[in-house]
């Protein structure tokens, strides 16, 4: 069973996850601006920048994160940002929530000058997340687990990160067993998505280069978190 402490931990994570969503006026823009590749690229970079701000606010609410070494906090955010953003986008796109304008978002992503060889694995990932029909608690915990991955580049005290990630994995494992008694493999499937995310991380670096080639500019916050010069 999930212990009292684990219930408190889960509640904090889910509340933070729900509190930090992309601002509605930003999402509405998806419907308003015209559909040129240029405009789509600008909108997507604006949304990605907002997603990074939301990600940092969510991360600050993960119990124990702010007590980590400051440099390690930055290393974890830089190392996990792309994966956490793909996970969040997959959850938004598969939620088909009316106020997220998912069709408009998908349309703009497809017509934003992104290279085809990157588009395919990305939408395959979105589909694979959609098929899991994840509960909000699972989404929030999986995002926190992604951020607290100890073996990111430049993390000095990996044990301290492991000590934060372990309890999240334990709660998620129990939650999956309780919520999906007919699918004993469900927890393993969730962790399998984290492996897929690492592959996407690699594609992402290449995608940025292809966009760079067409002289597309990213915002200062995206340049910092994606290490783009």
């Amino acid at each position: 069973a999930i212990t009292k402490d684990q219930q408190v931990l889960m509640k904090v994570i889910v509340e933070a996850y729900n509190r930090h969503q992309i601002p509605q006026d930003m999402a509405k823009k998806l419907l308003q601006e015209q559909y040129s590749a240029e405009e789509n690229f600008l909108l997507l970079t604006e949304m990605a920048t907002s997603q990074v701000q939301v990600l940092v606010e969510f991360t600050k609410n993960i119990p124990g994160f702010l007590s980590l070494d400051h440099e390690d906090q930055i290393a974890l955010l830089k190392g996990s940002a792309v994966e956490a953003m793909f996970l969040r986008s997959a959850q938004v796109l598969s939620s088909k929530k009316p106020n997220c304008h998912t069709d408009a978002l998908e349309e703009r992503i497809r017509k934003s000058g992104m290279s085809e060889e990157f588009m395919t694995p990305m939408f395959n990932f979105y589909k694979s997340i959609g098929k899991l029909h994840m509960m909000q608690e699972e989404q929030a915990l999986l995002t926190a687990i992604t951020i607290l991955t100890p073996d990111r580049p430049y993390v000095k005290d990996q044990q301290a990160v492991e000590r934060l990630q372990e309890p999240m994995l334990d709660v998620l494992r129990k939650l999956c067993a309780l919520q999906h008694p007919q699918e004993p493999q469900y927890f393993a499937h969730l962790l399998g998505r984290l492996t897929e995310l690492r592959t996407l991380n690699h594609y992402h670096a290449e995608m940025l280069t292809s966009w760079r080639v067409n002289d597309h500019k990213f915002t200062p916050l995206l340049c910092e978190i994606w290490d783009v010069q």
Partner: peptide
Amino acid sequence: EEPSLLKKLLLAPANS
């Protein structure tokens, strides 16, 4: 060196 935007966001009070 450019001040880190990430550091600024991290140091801002939570839920700002």
